[in-house]
């Protein structure tokens, strides 16, 4: 469901010097749609930029959602400067990341702003008496947002790993053994996700859950080796030079898919691939999907690709 809701920035506060928490309400109704903890929404900003944000508040609070925005680039700067009262568009909640139903135990690992999806996943789990522990990593205590709130929620089940306290989480040790019924979750920067995947390589696939909105940096996302694409429906061939993304070239040709994060993280701009060798650089497509699709904002080709466009 990608219908857009008009929402109003009802409140805003700085949670850390670089993280602004925005409270969003529906512009016309007194309730937002229900969602499962861990869901995200795609926001359309006043200039048309689209960005995905985890809903970082208790799903039981129906009248408003919180999102926490780390200032790191174009979209987040707009959200940092937006006055209270501004209008945005938000999609209905998009599922993807969330607590596994029926799990006996939840081990959660968050890096910095990666805490946000857990803030909507945890309240229902806590109310249900679930066994959930959250490991929160950050460079320093002051750079991690919403730590106090999370501590209120979790008490001793929040374990902090702050670099300035010389504490470093050993993921391999934490996740060394897998017991049936235990599920592990990670949301954080790419390096942490890679370490998490390596540490859970021996776990069953269905017991590991990852989320990221932090894709490739813009300059890396839009460059690489030159290649070309043939559009099967029109027969047109387009060249993608080394300094441009496929998405950019498709936009110029007027055949671009919708796009959001433009860093290979959200999966909005995927297109079907009929033939050719794709260089996948996204963080969102699973193995089976990679056999037939590609993410146009970051992924490239070797030689010529044939797209079902």
């Amino acid at each position: 469901m990608r219908v857009l809701m008009p929402v109003t920035v009802a409140d805003a506060r700085m949670a850390t010097p670089r993280v602004r928490v925005l409270t969003l309400r529906h512009a016309r109704r007194d309730r937002l749609p229900p969602f499962q903890g861990g869901a995200h929404t795609l926001l359309t900003l006043p200039d048309g930029t689209k960005r995905a944000y985890s809903i970082a508040s208790d799903p039981a609070r129906e009248e408003a959602w919180d999102i926490a925005v780390l200032r790191e680039g174009h979209g987040s700067s707009i959200l940092h400067e937006l006055p209270v009262g501004s209008r945005l568009y938000a999609t209905h909640p998009q599922a993807g990341f969330g607590a596994a139903a029926g799990a006996a135990r939840h081990v959660m690992v968050a890096g910095g702003i990666g805490l946000t999806p857990f803030l909507s996943m945890l309240p229902p789990l806590i109310r249900a008496g679930a066994d959930a522990t959250l490991h929160l990593c950050a460079r320093e205590e002051g750079s991690a947002p919403l730590v106090a709130e999370t501590r209120v929620l979790l008490g001793e089940r929040l374990v902090t790993w702050f670099g300035d306290a010389r504490r470093r989480l050993d993921l391999a040790a934490l996740l060394a053994g897998h017991e049936p019924g235990t599920h592990a979750y990670c949301c954080g920067p790419q390096r942490m996700l890679e370490a998490f995947r390596a540490a859970t390589a021996h776990w069953p696939d269905e017991a590991i859950h990852t989320e990221t909105f932090l894709g490739l940096a813009p300059e890396r996302a839009t460059s690489g080796e030159a290649f070309s694409v043939r559009l099967a429906r029109s027969g047109v061939t387009l060249d993608v030079p080394a300094n441009r993304s496929l998405l950019d070239v498709l936009r110029e040709a007027g055949v671009a898919p919708e796009a959001s994060c433009e860093g290979g993280a959200c999966g909005t701009c995927t297109v079907p691939v009929l033939a050719g060798r794709v260089v996948h650089r996204d963080l969102c497509l699973s193995g089976p999907k990679r056999a037939r699709m590609m993410t146009t904002c970051v992924s490239r080709g070797e030689g010529e690709l044939i797209l079902d466009l």
């Binding site: 219908v3 857009l4 008009p6 016309r28």
Partner: peptide
């Protein structure tokens, strides 16, 4: 609807 893809208002 006030714009493309935005939910309709009755």
């Amino acid at each position: 609807a006030e714009a493309a893809s935005v939910e309709m208002e009755t």
